[in-house]
């Protein structure tokens, strides 16, 4: 049962990824990426990580992709013009690196990387939202708060960088880096 479910979701994820690459319209690309994210979320569920599933859906599919679509439509950048690649060595390099990644993945699968190492069995409560929440409010209380301050600074930054260009409308930058 698991294998069938996995095969279906994996196929959907792959199709989404490939379709995103070949789509000529940026909006279509974004929507295909959304499909890919949703499929990956289901994969997380199959791996018994309900929390990652929810995060993947709400944060990536929900927030980030919506923002992405919004920006693409706002800028009217749906259409890709057929301009020749400015950096000629970029495409071969990307292909080469991609091939290397696939090779590494194949080799590690062939060498048995999927077998659980001794003692590596995850605890039943691993990735449990309640536990994560408890950790955030106990051991990681301080990082949690500091993250809040960082977000505050980022929001202030958006306001500052936009405000100064009040007369023009050229400012399109988000100040958070990662």
């Amino acid at each position: 049962m698991d294998v069938i479910l996995f095969a279906i979701t994996a196929a959907v994820a792959l199709i989404g990824a490939i379709a995103m690459l070949v789509a000529r319209n940026a909006v279509h690309s974004a929507l295909f990426l959304l499909l890919n994210f949703a499929a990956i979320a289901v994969l997380f569920l199959l791996l018994q990580s309900p929390f990652l599933f929810a995060i993947q859906l709400t944060v990536y599919a929900g927030a980030i992709m919506v923002l992405f679509l919004f920006v693409v439509m706002l800028l009217g950048a749906e259409r890709v013009e057929d301009t020749p690649d400015r950096i000629a060595w970029q495409r071969p390099l990307a292909l080469g690196l991609g091939a290397a990644l696939v090779a590494v993945a194949v080799v590690s699968v062939l060498r048995g990387a999927w077998e659980v190492p001794p003692g590596g069995e995850a605890a039943a409560t691993f990735g449990d939202p309640a536990q994560l929440g408890a950790l955030l409010f106990t051991n990681y209380l301080l990082p949690f708060q500091v993250t809040g301050i960082i977000l505050l600074v980022a929001v202030v930054g958006v306001a500052v960088l936009n405000q100064r260009g009040r007369t023009t409308s050229t400012v399109k930058r988000a100040p958070s880096g990662d």
Binding site: G157, S176, G177
Partner: peptide
């Protein structure tokens, strides 16, 4: 987190001299 708090602030301040 300390590095990021410092860096994000500096990204903003670096671009402060509009236009």
């Amino acid at each position: 987190l300390g590095i990021e708090l410092l860096s994000i602030t500096l990204y903003i301040l670096t671009g402060f001299a509009y236009p």
